[in-house]
Amino acid sequence: MEKQSHILLTGASRGIGKAIFETLDIAGTRIVGHASSARGNLIGADLSLPGAAEALWNAALERLDGRIDVLVNNAGIFEPNPIDRSDIEWLDGWEQTMRINLTASAELCRYAVRHWQETGRGGRIVNVASRAAYRGDSPAHWHYAASKAGMVAMTKSIARGYGTDGILAFSICPGFTMTGMAQDYLASRGGPELLKDIPLGRVAETSEIAEIVKFCAVDAPPSMTGAVIDANGASFVR
């Protein structure tokens, strides 16, 4: 990799993504961020729509002078989808979450792998998954847990399949993290009572997850490729 890393980060407008953007926006990097709609210097792309991932990749390549060294897939949604909805509503909820959380991430991973194979440069993928990939989630969030489990399996497959090309892949699995999305969920599940399930006694800070992403994106030794890093306050250990 060149001394200066070119980074594409999805879901950069708030929460964990905003913290990642600020942490990676350091000397020696050029970072392009994404949001669901254009704002400031972030590229807008609605990842629920066909073709959006390709348009985002191409726009990022243009901004980064035709080279991306690191892809960080952080964009995702966490919306309830209870089983007592109508059949079509439940299926729409399932497919919307899969489309944004998993399929768009897969598309971007594919573009990245092909880009690095063509250039012969190698690169890094960091996929922000979730504790739910292993522990599961609430009865209203089957789809979310399944999408994150798929992301972990995809990351491992990329690491195993393309290591000889110098392509490294890492998964990060946060538990509850103090974002607006998590605060709403904590409140809906009893707030302080839910914290009793976390031995650390608190949820993670976005800055903590951002530091793990930075490590994987910039500093992690190549032999760590394929690793899944947990950050859940020991609420789930493997």
Results as ranks from 00 to 15, higher is better:
Thr155Cys: 00
Thr23Pro: 06
Ala35Phe: 14
Cys173Thr: 08
His34Pro: 02
Ser147Phe: 09
Leu168His: 04
Phe170His: 10
Ala159Pro: 03
Val228Met: 13
Gly123Phe: 03
Glu205Gln: 15
Phe176Ser: 02
Asp69Ala: 08
Gly11Thr: 05
Ile16Val: 12
Arg238Ile: 10
Gln183Gly: 13
Gly44Thr: 07
Met178Asp: 14
Asp87Pro: 08
Ile158Asp: 02
Gln183His: 15
Ile100Pro: 02
Ala231Lys: 12
Val32Ser: 06
Glu95Arg: 13
Lys18Ala: 09
Phe176Cys: 02
Asn41Gly: 08
Met181Ala: 12
Gln96Cys: 10
Leu47Ala: 12
Gly66Cys: 12
Gly17Met: 08
Ile43Gly: 01
Asp184Thr: 14
Pro50Phe: 09
Leu47Tyr: 01
Arg99Met: 12
Val203Phe: 05
Ala133His: 07
Gly93Met: 13
His115Trp: 11
Leu9Trp: 05
Ile26Thr: 14
Ile88Thr: 13
Cys109Leu: 06
Asn58Asp: 15
Ile31Met: 08
Leu42Cys: 04
Lys196Gly: 15
Ala59Asp: 13
Phe170Lys: 04
Pro50Ser: 11
Asp46Leu: 08
Thr119Phe: 09
Gly191Ser: 13
Val228Ile: 13
Thr177Tyr: 04
Val203Thr: 11
Ala60Cys: 07
Glu107Pro: 01
Ala234Val: 12
Ala149Cys: 08
Trp57Thr: 02
Gly201Asn: 12
Ala227Pro: 01
Glu211Leu: 10
Leu91Trp: 07
Gly40Ser: 10
Glu118Leu: 15
Ala234Met: 14
Gln183Ile: 11
Gly122Arg: 11
Val70Pro: 00
Val203Trp: 03
His141Pro: 04
Ile172Arg: 05
Ile7Lys: 04
Ser157Pro: 15
Asp197Met: 12
Pro80Ile: 06
Gly175Asn: 09
Gly33Leu: 10
Gly123Trp: 04
Ile172Ser: 04
Ala12Phe: 13
Ser235Ala: 14
Ile88Tyr: 11
Leu56Asp: 00
Gly93Asp: 10
Trp94Gly: 01
Pro50Met: 09
Ile125Gly: 00
Arg14Gly: 10
Thr23Arg: 05
Ala55Leu: 14
Thr225Ile: 13
Ala153Tyr: 02
Ser171Asp: 03
Asp87Thr: 15
Asn232Val: 08
Phe78Trp: 04
Phe21Pro: 00
Ile68Glu: 02
Ile77Thr: 08
Met154Thr: 00
Asn232Ser: 09
Glu118Ile: 06
Val128Pro: 00
Ser157Ile: 07
Arg189Ala: 06
